[in-house]
Amino acid sequence: MPEESTVPQPDVRIREIAPRLTFQNHPVATDVKTELVRRLLDAGVRSFELSSFVRPDLVPGLADAAEVFARVPRVPGLTLGACVGNMRGLARAADAGADTASFLLSVDEGFARANIGRSTADSLAELERMAAFAADRDLVLDTYLIFAWGGPTGPARGAADLEPLARRLLDIGVDRWILADSVGYAAPPQIRELVTAALAHVPADHLTVQIHDGRGMGLAALLPLLDLGVRAIDTSLAGSGGHPAMPGAQGGGVCTEDAVQLLELAGVSTGIDLSRLLDTANWLTDEVGVPGKGFVRHTGPVPAGGRPAEPLAFTW
């Protein structure tokens, strides 16, 4: 489990997912992955989705997952997560020292078969077996709800679509969820609707939201999440990312540096140094050659000075 820290906790926990989301689609050497994490640690990031323990023939860019876990320096307050697709992957994540493991559950049936080779129903049966395994070990098991808002090509989904799946997950004892807008379908009203429905089943501190900014609405989702009490948000440095099963798709997450600037200007602490984050984003895109997006690394941050922002009035 992560070491305890005496550093004040930020208002929002930003989990950096670029080490998994980007490198699953843009293979690089293990040294590059660990250098990225080191730079992000220097910037104050303390929560990562570090890699995936999945079949290397399907995702060859993450075949070095165990080595990456072994090389990352442990610092106080650090939490390291991994994606897993089955019991074998969960056992490998536990052996590697992961603090959390996230099951790759797709709400979209077609993508479920393309991604991990089984139906959503079969995935739920596998997750039930994995929940029993994780309960006997010092490992937090949560689950993705990939395409929770719809996609990759089908219609949008709403609260009514979530209900049967939510009940099934609670039946098998999995009450920590990552709602993923995997192709950027949701504007703030849709974000609010589905998150509100999820919060009827699980507490806010068991919910993470991950927005893939494929349609330019990603940043707009952040403030509604805060208003709803969600404090765990997944972002990707330089808006980078993609998926081997969706070649050519806009698969990047909400841009970490843009998200940090927005939150800090809104009076919400993240514990992350924006200047160092920008240096790392530019290193990732310019020196490593990873495709990226985002605004603040091109235009520069809003100049410091003037009256500080009043913190937003949250409902904690």
Rank of each mutant, 00 (worst) to 15 (best):
G218C: 12
L223E: 15
I211W: 09
M246H: 15
P244E: 08
T208I: 05
L199M: 03
R192F: 07
M217G: 00
A249N: 05
H243Y: 15
T235P: 02
H201N: 04
V230A: 00
D227T: 12
G242K: 06
G242T: 07
D227C: 03
D227W: 03
D213E: 12
L223K: 03
V209A: 04
H243A: 14
A204N: 04
Q190Y: 08
L194V: 10
M217S: 04
L222Q: 03
A200Q: 12
V230L: 00
L199Y: 01
A204I: 01
P188G: 10
G229P: 00
A249S: 13
P203T: 03
R215E: 13
A204P: 01
L207P: 01
V209I: 04
A198T: 13
R176W: 02
I191P: 02
R215M: 14
A200C: 03
Q190V: 09
A249D: 08
A187W: 10
R215C: 12
G216Y: 14
S236T: 15
Q190E: 15
I172K: 07
G184I: 11
S240K: 05
A197F: 00
M246A: 15
V195G: 07
I211V: 13
A245L: 04
A238F: 10
L237G: 12
V183L: 03
A245C: 10
P247I: 13
R192I: 14
G214P: 00
D181G: 04
A200R: 13
G173P: 03
P247R: 11
L222G: 02
L223F: 13
L179Y: 09
L226Q: 06
P224W: 14
V209C: 11
V195N: 09
D234W: 11
H206S: 08
P203H: 05
A198P: 00
T208L: 13
D181V: 08
L219P: 02
H201W: 12
P244D: 10
P203L: 03
M217W: 06
M217T: 10
P188T: 12
P188S: 11
D205Q: 10
R215T: 15
E193T: 02
D181T: 08
M217D: 04
G216E: 12
P244V: 08
A204M: 06
L194R: 09
S182M: 11
D213S: 09
I172S: 07
G239T: 08
A187F: 04
T208Y: 07
G241T: 08
S182V: 05
A197K: 10
G241C: 07
L223R: 06
H206N: 14
Y185A: 05
A204L: 05
A204K: 02
V183W: 01
M217V: 09
L223I: 15
L237Q: 13
G241S: 10
Q210T: 09
T196A: 11
D175Y: 08
G216V: 05
S182G: 06
G242H: 03
I191E: 01
R215N: 15
G239C: 11
V230K: 00
A245V: 14
V230N: 00
A204W: 01
A180Q: 07
L179I: 06
I211H: 13
I191D: 01
T235C: 15
L207K: 01
D213I: 05
V183Q: 02
